[in-house]
Amino acid sequence: MATIITKEQQEKEKMVTLVSSDSEKFVVEQKVAEKSHVIKMVMNCCGIESPIPVRRVKGDILKSILEYCEKHSKGEAQEVMEKWDKEYMDKAEKDLVFFHDLMLASHFLHIQELVDLIAVTFAGMLKMKSPEEIRQKFNINNDLTKEQEEHIMTTFGWAFQPI
């Protein structure tokens, strides 16, 4: 019995080092890092003894992602998690550059839950806005020709008619 407990403890304390693109080091539990499908595969094939370079993700982004992974590896009640997710998103979406990089990084690391969460939050930013408002907020150039615009207007015509 005793050996099993120590094994479990060892399992629990297995730590792995992740290195970001700007050489910042993060030491996290293995189960936290496993939230990323990509890192999990790397750990399976290369082991956890040597630090794993996450070359395409910057330190501040990786820190935030690991914060998410750590919370989500605890298996808390759903209401608690939903509340935490909302606060996490509220904080992240304030800085669009950061938010945008967070989405790319979570997609790159293949943390599908986080990609979904960010996509829902992003979609919330796009709803109930005019095309011009969206272009300004996200710095998009309107490259539609007059003909294309007219075509869209006729396809969705009913939606633009004043009430």
């Binding site: 796009l126 709803k127 539609l144 207007m153 633009f160």
Partner: peptide, 14 residues
Amino acid sequence: RVPQPSIPSLSLVC
């Protein structure tokens, strides 16, 4: 994931 009523104006963005 954008709600349906907002879709038409999105297609006019770019």
